[in-house]
């Protein structure tokens, strides 16, 4: 069995770190877009306009019923056949955003539906039209409810970006594959990659746990 080779680890640390940075960049771009897009999907799913509700339902079911890997391949290799040619990064962002938005929209929907009927009644009784009540009263409370769930999805997104190697994005796993193909130091390289993932995901999980405690603490005055 090969042993961990410190020299190899150090020599390849630079390119691997560059790969990790791309992984993180990909994660943040997808988070930023899907936070907004998923909310629109959730609101569309609750619309009074039936065709919009059906469209949302078809989209969510199609995404949830197929593998993310297939969705990535589809966006990168099949869309060009109908004239939509995307570079690797854009294809990865598009597929991941479509995938995660479907799941996140369900999270938002759950959060919105968790808000008590009395809140809708009170807003309506004050003369607030439906969308104003949604924006000012319901969503601020719902988002607070779903923050921990969103956080956990984002951690799993961070790990799922590894699948983007199939569309040739040189994120950290793909970088390690390329390096290992040259020097055959699988143990060392993939161990470094594993540690890199943990170095990000472990603190992120602690942060989510902290946010969860914070959101459960209720609404109180902050005393300084």
């Amino acid at each position: 069995m090969e042993i961990f080779n410190v020299e190899i680890a150090l020599r390849n640390f630079g390119p691997l770190l560059a790969g990790l940075m791309l992984t993180i960049e990909l994660t943040f771009v997808v988070i930023a877009i899907s936070l907004v897009f998923a909310l629109l999907v959730a609101l569309g799913g609750m619309s009074r306009f039936a065709p919009l509700r059906w469209l949302v339902k078809v989209y969510v079911e199609a995404i949830r019923g197929t593998p993310l890997l297939l969705q990535l391949i589809y966006v990168y290799y099949v869309l060009p056949e109908i004239g939509i040619r995307l570079n690797s990064f854009t294809a990865g962002v598009l597929a991941l955003t479509l995938n995660y938005s479907a799941y996140l929209s369900e999270v938002y929907r759950g959060g919105i539906q968790a808000i008590a009927r009395g809140q809708h009644d009170a807003a309506a009784a004050l003369g607030m039209p439906r969308m104003l009540a949604m924006r000012r009263i319901i969503l601020p409370q719902a988002i607070r409810v779903v923050i921990p769930a969103l956080g956990n999805y984002f951690i799993s997104l961070f790990k799922d970006t590894a699948l983007c190697s199939v569309v040739s994005i040189q994120e950290v796993v793909f970088t390690a594959q390329i390096l290992a193909a040259r020097n055959f130091q699988y143990f060392t390289l993939y161990t470094v990659v594993g540690i890199m993932y943990l170095a990000v995901s472990f603190p992120a999980a602690r942060l989510v746990a902290y946010l969860e405690r914070l959101t459960k603490a209720g609404y109180r005055r902050r005393r300084s």
């Binding site: 008590a116 009395g118 009170a122 003369g127 607030m128 601020p140 409370q141 005055r221």
Partner: peptide
Amino acid sequence: AAVRAQLGMVFQHFNLFPHLT
């Protein structure tokens, strides 16, 4: 909504907005 704005309503369970002071 415009008619409702002319009527004040108070509920059994208060229904204050918990995220606002």
